[in-house]
Design a protein around this nucleic acid. Structure first.
Length: 900
RNA sequence: GGGCUAUUAGCUCAGUUGGUUAGAGCGCUUCCUUGACAUGGAAGAGGUCAGUGGUUCGAAUCCACUAUAGCCCACCA
C-alpha cells in the first residue's frame, strides 16, 4: 500500500545510488545511433547554483529522453581547474595562516592546491547527484588530469609549430591583485563616474603662461589617468587639426619631471575630444602603445605588477598605490599651476572578472594565439548549417565576435594550471625583451632537450640546463579541448569514434565567447569536425526583480535548499516549466511550488489507482478489451497525441512546451476528466485497465523531467519489478494503427468527447451562475443532432449531476438560460431553483452574447474573400458554428462553392 | 559608438510557419471538506496584445518609424 504522502527524500536517496551502482548511466560505444553531450565543466571551487540547476536540468531531460529512445547515450561529467578562481581560494586560505604563496614556493603551493581539490573539489560533483543528473560518473574528467594535460601540451606544440602561437611584448590587461595577465574577455567593463583632468604641458623653452586660452606657452591635455603622466613619452594631435599644426614637431615639457617630449601628429587622435591633444603613455595604454610603435617612442613602465608606482614614476611617488598616486600627483599639478581644470566624466573601466579589481593596461611579454585562421572555418561551419544555434539568433552574435576576433593572450602569471611547454636554456630568460630568444616548444622536456641539442650543437646539454616557462595557460586553453580531450584524444579511441562530434552543447549565453566559440575552433582544427551539432543557449536565472543573483545581495536561491524543501523533481520540473530558451528566467521560491504540487498530484493519482485496483478482482489486458466507451477512447487518443507531441517538442528543444504539454496531459486529461469518469464508469474493470496503460505511458513521458517520482511510482504500482528501471524503458511512441482500429479510436470520437465536455462545463457554469448547489439534481435539455448523444446520457447525467437530460433536435427554440456549445445548446431547467429577476438579467446578457457571435460570422460571410482565402478548416468550422442557423449555412455553402 | 532582445491579464510568462472566441501558473471572487489529492475540485472576473503608420480578405504574429526597458560587444584619451 502506498504511503499517504510522497517521501521525496527517501525516494531520492534510494534511487540515485541504485541507478549509479547498476551502471544505468554508463554507456560503452555500441552499434546504433549515438547521442552524446559533454557537461560544461563547473569550476572545482564551485557550489551548485541556480544556473547549474537550469543548465543541467535541460541536459538531463534531453539525455534521459534520448536514452529511453534507445540511443547509444553518453553524458560526460567533469570539472574545470579554474586557474585564477582556485588559486585565489587557496591563497585566501593561506592568508588566514598569515602566509603568501611565495612563502611556500611554487611546488609546495601547487601541492597545496591539489590537496584542497582532493578535499573540497568534490562538493559540486556531489551536489550534481542531488539534481538527479544521469551523467556517466565512471568517465568523470578534470581539466588538469593527465589526459587533458597531454592534450593541452600537444595542442600548444602543434599550434606553435604551425605558427599560430607566438610570444611577444604587448599591452595586456593586467590584474594587479591576481598578478596576472587577462584575456580581453576576462575583463568586465563597468560604468565609472570619474573625471577628466586638463593638464598644461609648457612648450619647451617657454615658461608656463597665465591661466586661460591655449596659447604659445603651453598646450592643454585631457586625461582620465593622470597618474600615468610620468610614463608619457609624447603628446599627439590629429594631423588634420589646423589648430595645432604649428606645434607639431616641437617639444613640450612634461610637468613635474622637466623631461622634454615631442608633439606628434597621429590619426588616432580625435579632434573633437577633450582639447584635441592626447598624452601618449605607450607602456600603459593599448592605443598609446600602437602610437608609440608607429613613432618609435620609448616605453616607460612606471608601475609594479601589483599596481604600485616604481622608481621610474619619480622618487616622490615610488611605492604609492596607483590611485593614491593619482591623488598625490593631481595635488602636485595643482600646486605647481599645471592643472588647468577638472571636468566630470563618465566612461567605462575594466575590472577583473575574478576579483573585480580595476584592470591595468600593462606592457609585458606574453604568449598569444593567432585567432583569425582558426576562426574562419568555425564561422563557415555555422554559416553552412553544419552546426546550428538554438535559438538561431545567437549565431549573429557568434558571427559578430568571430569576425572581429583578436589574438588571444593565453599566458597567465599563476602557479595553478597547465604550465606552458616552452623551455629556454638556463639564464637566458629575463635577459630582455628580445623576441629572438631561443625557445624550445615540445610536449615533453625530453623532446625540448633534443631540440636544444640540435639547435645549439651542444650534445652535452641535460635537462638541468633547461628552464621551463614559469607561466601557466589560461583555463580556457584546456576547456576549449573538452569535447575531444575527455574522449581520449590525442589517442585514437573507440569513444572518440562513436561520440565525437557530440550531439548537443547546452550552455548559458554568457560563455559563448569564452568557451563555445573556442571549442568550435579547436574541434575543427584538431579533429577536422566541429565538436557538436547543435548549440543550445539558454538564459540566465535571475532574481524576481530581474537583477543578477548574488550571494552578497542576498537575493539568490539555493538549489539545494529548494531540493530540501520541495524535492529534486519539483525543482527540475518547475525550472523547466518557467524557462524559455529565448530569455532570462526570473525566479522566486514560490514558483517551485508548481513542481511540488505536481508531485503531490501524481502521487495521489497513483494512490487512487492502487486503491481502486485493490477492489477489482480481475484484470484484463489491453489486447482483450473491447466495446470501449467514448471517454475511454478519448483518453487513449489523448495519450497517443501526448506521446507524439512530446517527442516532437523535444526534437526542437522546446523544454518548456514539453513540460506544459505533459503537465496538462496528466493533470487535465488524466486526473480532471478521465479519473473522474473512471469513478463511475459502466465497466470498471475495463476503465481501470485503460487507466493502467495510460498511466504508465504518462510516467514514462514524465520521467525525463521528474526521474525520481516516476521511478518510485512505477515500482509502487507494480509496473516494474525489482531490478528494473523506468530509466531504460522505451519512450512511448503512442498506439499503433492496429491498436487504434481494434479499440475503435478516431479523431471523430475524440472531438465528440471534447464537445460533450463543453456541454458539461456549460451546464456547470449555468449552475454556478444561478447559484444552484451541486447537491441539487437538476433537469437539463440539450439541443443536438448528434445521435450518439443519447447513448451517453448515463455518463452525462453523472457528470452534470442531473436527474434527467432530454435531447432535442438542433435548432430547437430553447428557453433561456442556455449556453451554446460545440455539442449543442445546453438548457438548464430552473423551475423552482432560482429567482426570476436574476434570470431575466441573465437572459438579456446571454441574448446579447449570442447576437454578437452571429454578427461576427455575418461580417465574415459578407466578405467574399473570407471564403476564397480561408483554409478549409476555417470554413468547416464556420459550418459547425452555424449549425443552428440553416439560413447562414446555406449562404456559406453558396459562397464556398463559388470559390471552390 | 556598434549589435541583440523584449514590451500580451494585478504578477511571471506561453502564443510554432499570419486564420475560429489570444492561453497557462500565481494572485483575486464565488461555491464545494462528495472516500486519490484543500499542495485539491468546480465556476468566474480581469487583456485597446507599448504607440503610430503600412502590407493583407484577415495582424499579437510580417514591414517601417517612435517610446520605454534590458543585455552584449567596443582602445576614444
Amino acid at each position: 500500500m502506498m504511503d499517504k504522502h510522497y517521501d521525496a527524500k527517501s525516494a531520492e536517496a534510494k534511487w540515485y545510488p541504485l541507478w549509479e551502482k547498476n551502471g544505468y548511466f554508463h554507456q560503452e560505444p555500441r552499434d546504433g545511433e549515438s547521442y552524446s553531450v559533454v557537461i560544461p565543466p563547473p569550476n572545482v571551487t564551485g557550489i551548485l547554483h541556480m544556473g547549474h540547476a537550469l543548465n543541467q536540468t535541460i541536459q538531463d531531460i534531453l539525455v534521459r529522453w534520448r536514452r529511453m529512445q534507445g540511443k547509444n547515450t553518453l553524458w560526460l561529467p567533469g570539472t574545470d581547474h579554474a586557474g585564477i578562481a582556485t588559486q585565489n581560494v587557496v591563497e585566501k586560505a593561506l592568508r588566514k595562516e598569515g602566509k603568501r604563496r611565495q612563502d611556500l614556493g611554487r611546488e609546495a603551493f601547487v601541492e597545496r592546491v591539489w590537496e584542497w581539490k582532493k578535499q573540497y573539489g568534490g562538493t559540486i560533483v556531489h551536489q550534481q547527484r542531488m539534481l538527479g543528473n544521469s551523467t556517466d560518473w565512471s568517465r568523470e574528467r578534470f581539466t588538469l588530469d593527465e589526459g587533458c594535460s597531454k592534450a593541452v601540451a600537444k595542442v600548444f606544440t602543434q599550434l606553435y609549430n604551425e605558427g599560430l602561437i607566438y610570444k611577444g611584448n604587448y599591452i595586456v590587461n593586467w590584474c594587479p591583485r591576481c598578478g596576472t595577465a587577462l584575456a580581453n574577455d576576462e575583463v568586465e567593463h563597468e560604468a565609472n563616474h570619474g573625471h577628466l583632468w586638463y593638464v598644461r604641458y609648457p612648450v619647451a623653452g617657454s615658461a608656463l603662461g597665465a591661466k586661460g586660452e591655449l596659447n604659445k606657452d603651453y598646450i592643454c591635455v585631457a586625461t582620465t589617468r593622470p597618474e600615468t603622466l610620468p610614463g608619457d613619452t609624447a603628446v599627439a594631435v590629429n594631423p588634420k587639426d589646423e589648430r595645432f599644426a604649428a606645434i607639431v614637431g616641437k617639444n613640450v615639457i612634461l610637468p613635474l619631471t622637466g623631461r622634454e617630449i615631442p608633439v606628434l601628429a597621429d590619426d588616432y587622435v580625435e579632434k573633437e575630444f577633450g582639447t584635441g591633444i592626447v598624452k601618449i603613455t605607450p607602456a600603459h595604454d593599448p592605443n598609446d602603445f600602437l602610437v608609440g610603435k608607429r613613432h618609435g617612442l620609448e616605453e616607460i613602465n612606471i608601475m609594479t605588477d601589483d599596481g604600485h608606482m616604481n622608481e621610474l614614476a619619480g622618487a616622490k611617488y615610488v611605492g604609492m598605490d596607483r590611485f593614491e598616486c593619482r591623488k598625490a600627483l593631481v595635488a602636485d599639478l595643482e600646486a605647481e599651476g599645471y592643472l588647468d581644470h577638472i571636468e566630470d566624466y563618465d566612461n567605462q573601466v575594466g575590472h577583473c572578472y575574478r576579483c573585480h579589481e580595476v584592470v591595468e593596461s600593462r606592457l609585458s611579454k606574453q604568449w598569444f594565439v593567432r585567432m583569425k585562421p582558426l576562426a574562419e572555418p568555425a564561422i563557415a561551419a555555422v554559416k553552412s548549417g553544419e552546426v546550428k544555434f538554438v535559438p538561431e539568433r545567437w549565431s549573429k552574435i557568434y558571427f559578430n565576435w568571430m569576425e572581429n576576433i583578436q589574438d588571444w593572450c593565453i599566458s597567465r602569471q599563476l602557479w595553478w594550471g597547465h604550465r606552458i611547454p616552452a623551455y629556454t636554456l638556463c639564464g637566458e630568460r629575463g635577459t630582455g625583451n628580445g623576441e629572438d630568444e631561443l625557445v624550445f616548444v615540445a610536449e615533453t622536456a625530453e623532446e625540448a632537450l633534443e631540440q636544444a641539442k640540435a639547435k645549439t650543437g651542444n650534445a652535452a646539454l641535460t635537462l638541468a640546463d633547461l628552464e621551463q616557462d614559469p607561466d601557466v595557460l589560461d583555463t580556457w586553453f584546456s576547456s576549449w579541448l573538452w569535447p575531444f580531450s575527455t574522449l581520449g584524444w590525442p589517442e585514437k579511441t573507440p569513444d572518440l569514434d562513436k561520440f565525437y562530434p557530440t550531439s548537443d552543447l547546452v550552455t548559458a549565453q554568457d560563455i559563448i565567447f569564452f568557451w563555445v566559440a573556442r571549442m568550435m575552433m579547436a574541434g575543427i582544427h584538431f579533429m577536422g569536425k566541429p565538436p557538436f551539432k547543435n548549440i543550445v543557449i539558454h538564459g540566465i536565472v535571475r532574481a524576481a526583480d530581474g537583477s543578477k543573483m548574488s550571494k552578497s545581495k542576498g537575493n539568490s536561491l539555493d538549489p539545494l535548499e529548494l531540493i530540501d524543501a520541495y524535492s529534486a523533481d519539483a525543482l527540475r520540473f518547475s525550472i523547466a516549466l518557467i524557462t524559455s530558451l529565448d530569455c532570462d528566467t526570473k525566479v522566486n521560491k514560490e514558483k517551485f511550488e508548481i513542481g511540488r504540487n505536481f508531485c503531490t498530484k501524481i502521487w495521489n493519482a497513483a494512490r487512487f489507482m492502487e486503491m481502486q485496483e485493490a477492489n477489482i478482482a480481475e484484470r484484463v489486458s489491453m489486447a482483450d478489451i473491447k466495446d470501449l466507451t467514448s471517454d475511454e477512447k478519448h483518453i487513449l487518443w489523448a495519450t497517443d497525441i501526448a506521446c507524439k507531441k512530446l517527442g516532437e517538442i523535444l526534437e526542437n528543444y522546446r523544454i518548456q512546451d514539453g513540460a506544459l504539454a505533459v503537465y496538462d496531459f496528466f493533470w487535465t486529461q488524466i486526473c480532471d476528466w478521465y479519473v473522474e469518469y473512471a469513478k463511475d464508469a459502466p465497466d470498471k474493470v475495463r476503465a481501470f485497465a485503460v487507466l493502467r496503460d495510460v498511466f504508465f505511458k504518462a510516467l514514462k513521458l514524465l520521467h525525463p523531467y521528474m526521474p525520481f517520482i516516476t521511478e518510485e511510482v512505477a515500482h509502487q504500482l507494480g509496473y516494474l519489478k525489482d531490478g528494473e528501471t523506468i530509466m531504460l524503458a522505451e519512450f512511448p511512441k503512442g498506439y499503433s494503427d492496429e491498436e487504434k482500429s481494434a479499440w475503435g479510436l478516431s479523431e471523430e470520437v475524440y472531438e465528440f468527447v471534447n464537445a460533450k465536455r463543453e456541454a458539461i462545463t456549460a451546464l456547470r457554469a449555468l449552475r454556478a451562475e444561478y447559484k444552484v448547489s451541486p447537491a441539487v439534481f437538476v433537469k437539463a435539455t440539450i439541443a443536438t443532432d448528434d445521435n450518439r448523444a443519447a447513448l451517453e446520457v448515463e455518463s452525462l447525467k453523472k457528470a452534470m449531476r442531473a436527474e434527467a437530460i432530454d435531447f432535442t433536435a438542433a435548432g430547437a427554440d430553447l428557453p433561456m438560460p442556455s449556453k451554446l456549445t460545440k455539442f449543442g445548446t445546453v438548457y438548464l431547467s430552473l423551475d423552482g431553483l432560482v429567482d426570476k429577476t436574476a434570470e431575466s438579467k441573465r437572459i438579456a446578457a446571454e441574448l446579447a452574447k449570442l447576437a454578437g457571435f452571429i454578427k461576427a460570422f455575418e461580417a465574415k460571410l459578407s466578405n467574399e474573400n473570407f471564403v476564397a482565402h480561408a483554409p478549409e478548416a476555417v470554413v468547416a468550422d464556420a459550418r459547425k458554428k452555424l449549425a443552428d442557423n440553416k439560413e447562414k449555412v446555406a449562404q456559406l455553402e453558396k459562397l464556398a462553392k463559388l470559390f471552390a
